[in-house]
Design a protein around this nucleic acid. Structure first.
Length: 276
DNA sequence: AACCGTGCCAACCGCGCAACG
DNA sequence: ACGTTGCGCGGTTGGCACGGT
């Protein structure tokens, strides 16, 4: 049983990518677009497995990747989203423009999980406040700084901003059955009057109305919708085929209401129902 | 100056799901 | 209906850089 490996691995390079390989990959994707990862390496002249190419592109080479420090706002947002979603890194990443799931996962594992472990639930607020200051002089931060310096990246977290801008996530593949379960859970949870998830609808859905479609994210114009001190960029030019996502937007609004309430009782059970 | 411990992070791995034939 | 393929996700690993001694 079990699947065959994604590639034979025989005669393929592994480990760190060279700049030459990066260039080949970038050039190919610029010319032909993302996708067809399995056949991409051969066509691009890379001796890598497709999976490795995809990972390299998604986590490092994509032009919209934001590198540099996780800002205090992002830090806070990660904590909040993690408390709601658990280890759904791709969903969390979808709310942080330019951040990858891998980066957030790493950040969580190396910074936040330890920090939160050290803080009891009682002094959560203290923990949140700490999140910004504590990062000031860590080894990791120095390292990052060096990297930024060398790459000419300027960190924009000099002063903590009062609002975090949250974007609708990039396309996130969520299986239909999961969505159906998700929707059922939410409906039972919040008694929502939202429309039904139609069976057999294989539209790709992101979490909470987070849409789908092409991966470049460029087609998404946005307006700002504020909630709980946060700013959410919403798209108004959603493709017609994705109208059902509006329902998920409703769900997300419910979720925002819970956040606004700042009462973790209902929030917790809400999340539990999602993750059940 | 050399060694050692620690921690970050890029990359790998295995699994599950959807799409396709 | 079933098997195969392709993709995306979350968990884990290992190399490397840094700080401490």
């Amino acid at each position: 049983m079990g699947r065959a490996p994604c590639c034979s691995k025989v005669g393929l390079y592994r480990g760190p990518w060279t700049t030459k390989e990066d260039t080949l990959l970038i050039n190919y994707i610029q010319a032909h677009g993302e996708g067809r990862w399995r056949s991409l390496p051969k066509k691009a002249g890379l001796l890598r497995c497709g999976k490795s190419c995809r990972l390299r592109w998604m986590n490092y080479l994509r032009p919209d990747i934001k590198r540099g420090n996780i800002t205090p706002d992002e830090d806070d947002l990660i904590i909040r989203l993690h408390s709601l979603l658990g280890n759904r890194w791709s969903l969390i990443a979808g709310r942080l423009p330019g951040r990858t799931d891998n980066e957030i996962k790493n950040y969580w594992n190396s910074h936040l999980s330890k920090r939160l472990k050290n803080n009891t639930a009682g002094n959560k607020s203290k923990c949140m406040g700490e999140s910004a200051g504590k990062r000031g002089d860590t080894k990791a931060n120095n390292k990052r700084k060096q990297k930024e310096d060398s790459e000419g990246i300027s960190s924009r977290n000099g002063e903590a901003t009062t609002k975090t801008k949250i974007y609708l996530p990039r396309a996130t593949r969520v299986c239909t059955s999961s969505v159906a379960k998700y929707i059922n859970n939410i409906q039972s949870m919040i008694g929502s009057s939202s429309s039904n998830a139609e069976e057999g609808d294989h539209t790709n859905w992101g979490m909470s109305g987070l849409k789908v479609a092409n991966n470049d994210g460029q087609a998404w114009a946005s307006n700002n919708e504020e909630f709980d001190g946060l700013v959410c960029d919403h798209d108004l030019s959603c493709p017609i085929s994705l109208q059902k996502d509006i329902m998920l937007d409703d769900i997300f609004e419910e979720y925002q209401q819970l956040l606004k309430a700042d009462d973790h009782g209902p929030l917790d059970s809400f999340v539990e129902s999602l993750l059940a």
